[in-house]
């Protein structure tokens, strides 16, 4: 059982913090949505607290484990022919977008990205299912990647539409 080749680069180590903080924020939101009504309104208290306990435990495990597994699994590379990335934590996904098929390359930075000096790079093709998202790149590297990819794709013809 030969796996597909692993892409060349690992993502930035700070990506672990990104996922951890992001997950923690999501965890707090879930808890707030479930616990606040439980405190305020007595009749639903038991069921909402039960839901909070079950969902909270599951989410906590996901939040604490997945960033570190993801950091070990996620890899990426951009070459003269394609963008190639691997992702997942309990599942696996290897994705290729050939340069000749790329329609746009974007770097995105939300406030958390900015705080950690990271960026997310998104490569789109003509297919709505063909996006390749590389999370957790150093923001300067991401900018250079976008520039070089845009430059490289300009020299290719046709996007298979």
């Amino acid at each position: 059982m030969e796996e597909p080749r692993a892409p060349r680069h690992r993502i930035d180590p700070r990506a672990r913090w990104y996922w951890l903080i992001n997950g923690a924020l999501g965890f707090v939101m879930t808890m707030a949505v479930l616990i606040v009504p439980a405190v305020v309104w007595e009749p639903i208290r038991f069921w909402f607290l039960l839901a909070a306990a079950v969902l909270g435990t599951i989410e906590l495990v996901v939040v604490l484990v997945s960033p570190f597994v993801r950091y070990r699994v996620h890899r990426w590379e951009a070459s003269g022919t394609a963008v190639y990335a691997k992702s997942g934590w309990i599942s696996r996904e290897w994705s290729v977008a050939p340069l000749s098929r790329i329609q746009s390359v974007k770097a995105k930075r939300n406030p958390l990205h900015q705080l950690l000096g990271l960026a997310q790079v998104k490569v789109t093709t003509a297919s709505a299912y063909g996006d390749i998202v590389i999370e957790g790149l150093d923001h300067e590297l991401a900018e250079r990647l976008v520039a070089e990819l845009t430059e490289a794709t300009e020299h290719t013809v046709g996007d298979a539409t």
Binding site: E2, R5, P7, R8, T81, W94, P98, D138, L145, L149
Partner: peptide, 28 residues
């Protein structure tokens, strides 16, 4: 999985199986 990798090589490109000749952002 092996067949999947071979299929993907034909459909998407050789990256699934072999190293490309030239990388971008090599300074990094």
């Amino acid at each position: 999985l092996g067949t999947a990798a071979r299929l993907a090589t034909v459909l998407g490109g050789p990256q699934f199986a072999e190293d490309p000749e030239r990388y971008l952002v090599t300074d990094h």
